[in-house]
Design a protein around this nucleic acid. Structure first.
Lengths: 148, 148
DNA sequence: GATATTTAGATGTAGGTACATATATTAGCA
DNA sequence: TGCTAATATATGTACCTACATCTAAATATC
């Protein structure tokens, strides 16, 4: 749905102002689509993102801190997302041999399995929901890079 | 900051996939900027949006339901945002003469004053943070319209 | 080497989303 | 009319962000 219909307004003070609202609205739509796809797997979008980040270093464990730097939302409270994943036995907390302040996090077999199963569905369904060609996506990325 | 630096990755399965992450990241940046600007005024981004919507119909009161349809995030819990605004005496709940199920919401003088003062700062500072020309914004809007 | 500073992570709190459900009231209709 | 269905709002719960603060441990500085 176009922004105008979605928020029932057609008066924007400038294209720039409209762009701000448009980005916020589109992001909300995307989050909604992704969360909906993840629902059958019993994990939230944020939990999914953490699992994906962990997969990148698997089987090596990652520090909580390094997970945080790779998340899109920089103020995410990583320890608490980890709590939820630990409770579901999808990840494991390990002591760090290098530094006792650190906690290392590693995917469990169950975590890897759930991640792969969910990604097989979520990824293509999300991509399919985006009505943009690769070329248009490239333009969009150029406009967004360094926008803010 | 560009997406690649922000999430420390340069591997995306497609431009389309990158576009999804880029929209989510840019929206997070914008929200952060706006929330930061609003901090001195003691209201959240969501509370600010509700105030702005109410201003559109002021001095006529609005139904809770109609406020909801104009918000960008469609699952926002409007009654609870109203609770916070009522507590700060920025809006008032009124009974509806037409339908006793409805609650009508109206800006108070204090609400109008805070809205105007905050908008004078937030609006230009947010717009200034966006490094896009009007022409680029127009292209961006075309790409985003009906993207999802 | 002892003390101060910094860092990593966990935790507390306020406010938010997403979604299910409760409550009151209105509309629909046999 | 009287009953059912739909509607408007409020409320409960789980999980999230934003941000302050706490604790333990490592690093820096004298």
């Amino acid at each position: 749905m176009k922004l105008e219909e979605a928020i029932q307004t057609s008066r924007f003070s400038s294209e720039k102002h409209k762009a701000v609202l448009n980005i916020l609205y589109t992001a909300w739509q995307l989050k909604t689509i992704i969360s909906h796809e993840l629902k059958p797997f019993g994990i939230s979008h944020e939990q999914y993102n953490v699992l994906r980040i962990l997969k990148g270093s698997n089987p090596k464990a990652m520090r909580v801190k390094d997970i945080g730097t790779r998340l899109i939302e920089k103020n995410s409270n990583v320890p608490r997302i980890i709590d939820k994943l630990v409770a579901k036995k999808l990840v494991k907390r390990l002591p760090s041999p290098d530094d006792n302040r650190e906690t290392l996090i590693r995917l469990t077999a169950a975590g890897m399995q759930l991640l792969e199963a969910s990604t097989r569905l979520v990824q293509p369904n999300t991509i399919r929901a985006i009505r943009l060609s690769e070329k248009e996506s490239l333009y969009l990325n150029r406009l967004l890079d360094g926008l803010a």
